[in-house]
């Protein structure tokens, strides 16, 4: 068979649970060697997607390829993927140090010295039983395994739960510096988008089991803008554009529009006295994932209108 480009390839992947569809015909290529952000609301299908990559779960239909092969029962592929879940279960009889020792057995790239540094920085009590760790310390175990494993594909699923601001900063700092020295494919799933936005090179946004954004972080940055100014001027400027969000205050309007603005359009806005504000990744994600709901509601309304006529 022909190997698809990149380290991960999903073709029309659907995952159904008993009464929900977690992923709905997802097609995605991950080139690799970048830090990817996997974003989306709770229940958007992020964890399901990550589970499929390490065959911790199974697709209902479609095809999953990791390094060109299906990961299921494939030790060769699995040894190159590290995915510590947000709600990772550890053996009850383990101490924190045991979990790290186990990871050192299974990941060929494990860096024990790096792990020791992280243990020190994140103040993880190695001798303490896993059952007695706080939520933050449990997250620290996952973070240390993820970083020190240096797996070619490393997946972090909400790695910061229970970690305080200092510990999160240590994680981000270590992630960037270690990634710079040992480039690999990092997939970071997070709700704290503002915190991680600058770390990401590529963003994948999931909403209700669909990929709605799959683009370069830099490109996404100016793929939308907020127009601020007098209501009439704003209204005429945004006419014919996809509106993601609208707010008004008296005669003042602030409208977020989808799509890139040309230099000429920017100049035009300035000429009309309109202010153009950048839309942060966080705002964009909120607008885009909310918009889906509006579209669904909007698609339902014409029927009602029709019935009235």
């Amino acid at each position: 068979m022909t190997n698809p480009p990149g380290v991960i390839s999903l073709r029309n992947v659907t995952k159904r649970y008993r009464d929900t569809t977690a992923l709905d015909g997802v097609t995605l290529d991950i080139e690799g060697g970048k830090i990817y952000g996997l974003l989306g609301r709770n229940g958007a299908g992020k964890t399901t997607l990550m589970s499929l990559l390490s065959a911790q779960n199974f697709e209902t239909s479609g095809d999953v390829r990791v390094f060109g092969e299906h990961p299921y029962e494939n030790d060769g592929v699995l040894a190159r993927v590290c995915f510590v879940r947000e709600s990772q279960k550890y053996p009850d009889d383990f101490k924190a140090g045991h979990a790290l020792k186990a990871a050192s057995l299974f990941f060929p790239g494990w860096d024990a010295a790096f792990a020791a540094e992280l243990v020190d920085e994140l103040q993880l009590p190695l001798k303490r039983s896993i059952k007695k760790l706080s939520r933050g310390q449990l997250s620290a175990v996952g973070v240390i395994i993820g970083l020190a494993s240096r797996a070619e594909i490393t997946v972090f699923d909400e790695p910061y739960l229970g970690l305080d601001a200092v510990a999160r900063q240590i994680f981000y700092d270590r992630l960037v510096s270690d990634y710079a020295e040992h480039p690999r494919t990092i997939i970071l799933s997070s709700h704290l988008i503002d915190e991680v936005a600058n770390l990401l090179e590529h963003v994948i946004l999931l909403d209700a089991g669909h990929v709605i954004i799959d683009d370069d972080a830099e490109a996404i940055r100016d793929s939308a803008a907020t127009v601020l100014g007098a209501a009439d001027a704003v209204a005429s400027f945004v006419e014919g554009r996809t509106v993601l969000h609208r707010e008004t205050l008296g005669t003042l309007a602030s409208v977020t529009i989808d799509g890139r603005l040309t230099e000429a359009e920017r100049a035009g806005a300035a000429y009309q006295g309109l202010e153009l504000l950048p839309v942060s990744l966080q705002q964009l994600v909120i607008r885009k994932t909310k918009k889906q709901e509006h579209t669904e509601r909007a698609s339902a309304s014409p029927i009602r209108t029709g019935a009235r006529q």
């Binding site: 970048k34 990634y179 710079a180 020295e181 480039p183 600058n198 090179e201 972080a217």
Partner: peptide, 18 residues
């Protein structure tokens, strides 16, 4: 270096390199 910039500003090294 690129990596120093990336670490200092907590940004993706590819962005710093760009």
């Amino acid at each position: 270096s690129t990596n120093e910039f990336a670490a200092f500003f907590r940004i993706n090294p590819a962005t710093a390199a760009k």
